[in-house]
């Protein structure tokens, strides 16, 4: 059983973690908290549909038991932007048609958000030529870093176009600042 103190913050609200130790973080979010924006595509860490941010880092929430998140800060798609108040990243997905059925989409967006943070922190990837240098933000880098998020509808090139737009806007904002 969960310790009475086991709690986590989800989208800024404090919640007691579930009693059943078998409950995954994904099922806790979807079933107990009603945050169904996070999707279950495989339940085995193979598709990325369940991607959420834990303390700012992306994880597959299906691969993690809820009780392991005592004291963690969890962000889901619901915290990134609502339908009538979309974030720039979500807007770019809409304008570039970075989805079709939409089932992989919250995972893609959460993953992309964290990936951009990783890029800005200078993380290397398997396709980076120089793992010590700041990464070049090429399409190849973006594809590599997003490859944990499957899209059976095949919206990949539109997703990359959406990410390029958001990254370019962010870069020009930095240049203006």
């Amino acid at each position: 059983m969960a310790l009475p103190m086991s709690r986590a913050s989800v989208n800024g609200t404090d919640h007691a973690l579930p009693a059943d130790p078998r409950r995954t973080l994904l099922d806790w979010l979807r079933e107990d908290l009603g945050l169904t924006g996070t999707k279950k595509g495989c339940d085995h860490g193979q598709c990325g549909a369940c991607t959420v941010l834990v303390d700012g880092r992306r994880i597959n929430s299906c691969l993690s038991l809820a009780q392991l998140h005592d004291g963690d800060t969890i962000e889901t798609i619901e915290s990134i932007g609502s339908a009538d108040n979309l974030s720039p990243l979500q807007k770019a997905f809409v304008t570039h048609d970075g989805f079709q059925c939409g089932y992989c989409t919250p995972g893609q967006i959460c993953s992309a958000k964290a990936m951009m943070q990783e890029l800005s922190e200078g993380w290397a990837s398997a396709v980076s030529d120089d793992v010590t240098a700041a990464p070049d933000i090429t399409r190849e880098e973006l594809r590599e870093r997003m490859s944990g998020n499957l899209c059976r509808c095949g919206a990949y090139s539109n997703i990359i176009a959406a990410l390029e737009e958001v990254l370019a806007d962010a870069a020009s904002e930095r240049a203006d600042a």
Partner: peptide
């Protein structure tokens, strides 16, 4: 689209 990208 806005519903899909916001998980709603």
């Amino acid at each position: 689209g806005p519903l899909k990208v916001s998980g709603s």
